[in-house]
Amino acid sequence: MSDPSMFLAWKEMKHAKARFILIGFIMVLLAYLVLFVSGLANGLQADNVSSIQHMKATSFVVAQNSDQRLQSSQLTEKQWHELQRTKDVTPLGLRMTSVKQQGSQKKIDSTLMAIDPEQFLAPTIEEGQAVTHLRPNEVVGDYSLKEHGFMLGDVLVETMTGKTMTLVGFTKNELFSHAPVLHMTTQGWHRLFGAKVSWNAGALRTAVHLPSIKGVEQASKEEIVQSVPGYKEEQGSLTMMIVFLFVISAFVLSVFFYVLTLQKMSHFGVLKAMGATTRYLARSILYQVLLLTSFSVAIGVGLTLLTGALLPSTMPFHVTPTLLLSCCGLLITVAILGSLLSLNTVRKVDAIEAIGRAN
């Protein structure tokens, strides 16, 4: 260890193992709790709007009276006809429903999405038949359907119309409003709901100037996501929990390191009397904070990944490298900020007074 401050920090941590292990254990729990709740928030978000987020669309054209909700929007035949004059637009049909396997009474909530399989809204197939080969009576569904016993080749019954369709492929992470999405062709949409049924929206891949169409508005993908029922409330509650956890972490760590600093006032006084500078002592405390926090956060990450591996696939829990790095960075930053109170105390240490108190 070339830095003397690091040497002092490490020697003190080795000398007071029990004290630092206890603090580290609490930091591990805080890190694990923050990462777990963040993974839960991320999983619930994906469970709610992943199908929209994965679309290669930048914006959507919806009815003005729909509050930018796809399921509430309904374009008239005239509006869609005028919208088709726009370059790079494709129809989107969406309907919340339930399906069941033929011969079974168990209904599964799902979302039907009608798309042009030759256009940019087509999902990626993980197993089974390609979307471009879909027939009007065939659909591809999200992998979560497998958890309910659905398999390739199953005949599904759409409970609203009583009509059947065959499951010929599986997609991944295609969910809407916490329900698996069943993608079908525009012909299949008309087969289910009639030839005159209108589209819910028109999807645009690039930013284009829309013709003046009465009764419609353009909404970005993010606006559509934010308008999904319950999305903002759900994410808002979880985000508030995460923020409070960071605040609690900062408070707890501040108290711990402040108490430790107070207990070492006489030691700091002796070191200052021997010529140690405030900067030297402050760096020693910062090294302790960084070492302890980094090690604790690493254990917290390991526990989070282990938890994610053990949880059932139906549990809405999802962590990404970006999420882990951002949370870990914030936790370390919070720990450093929490140590500022201790650093200020070290700055005020008077060698003679501290030695006098020790005697």
Rank of each mutant, 00 (worst) to 15 (best):
E234V: 01
S5H: 09
L337K: 00
Y143T: 15
L30Y: 04
M113Q: 14
A335Y: 00
M113P: 09
G194Q: 03
H183E: 07
W10S: 07
L192T: 00
A351C: 09
I352Y: 13
N359G: 15
V225H: 05
G215E: 05
P117N: 10
L156V: 05
Q218R: 14
F20L: 10
F36I: 08
L341E: 07
G162K: 05
Q53M: 14
M55P: 04
K172I: 00
E234K: 07
V228F: 08
H267G: 11
A46K: 07
F244A: 11
V155M: 13
V49P: 12
K78D: 14
L305E: 05
F246W: 06
G194M: 11
T345E: 11
G194Y: 13
F120R: 07
K14G: 05
L192G: 03
L238T: 01
L8Y: 14
R191V: 01
I213D: 10
L145E: 12
T161G: 11
F295K: 00
V168E: 11
G356Q: 03
F256D: 06
E217K: 07
L30C: 15
T277F: 10
A201I: 01
T185N: 06
T322K: 13
Q187T: 04
L29T: 04
A250P: 06
Q74L: 12
G162F: 10
W189T: 06
G302N: 01
N359L: 14
E234P: 00
V168L: 09
